[in-house]
Amino acid sequence: MVNIKKKIPNATMKRLPLYYRYFKQAEEAATDRVSSKEISEALDIDSATIRRDFSYFGELGRKGYGYNVKSLLNFFMEHIQGNDKKNIVLVGVGNLGSALLNYKFNNLSDKMNVVAGLDNNDDLVGTKINDVTIHHSDDLESIIENGNVEVAILTLPVSASQEMAERLVDAGIKGILNFTPTRLDLDKKIYVHNIDLGVELQALFFYMKNL
Rank of each mutant, 00 (worst) to 15 (best):
N95D: 11
R62P: 00
K128F: 08
E59W: 02
N68A: 11
S98A: 10
D185C: 09
K209S: 12
K174Q: 12
G92A: 06
N74E: 15
S55K: 05
N83W: 00
E28N: 14
V69N: 08
V169I: 11
A42I: 07
K188S: 15
K14M: 12
V199Y: 09
V158W: 03
F23C: 08
A11I: 14
M112E: 00
V158Q: 12
L186P: 04
E28D: 14
Y103H: 07
V34C: 08
P157F: 10
N113E: 06
D119S: 12
I45A: 07
R52Q: 09
E41H: 08
K111V: 01
E150A: 09
Y67K: 09
G172A: 07
N87Y: 05
L140H: 02
A42M: 07
N146I: 00
K5S: 11
L18E: 11
H135M: 10
A48V: 13
S47P: 10
N10E: 14
T31L: 15
E59G: 04
L201H: 11
G175I: 00
L177I: 13
S159N: 12
L154H: 04
K104Q: 01
N95R: 14
R62K: 15
F75G: 06
L90M: 04
K104P: 03
Y20L: 07
V151I: 12
K209A: 14
L184W: 11
L60A: 04
D53S: 03
V114G: 03
V93E: 03
G198P: 01
Q81L: 11
K70C: 08
V91F: 14
R62V: 15
A11K: 13
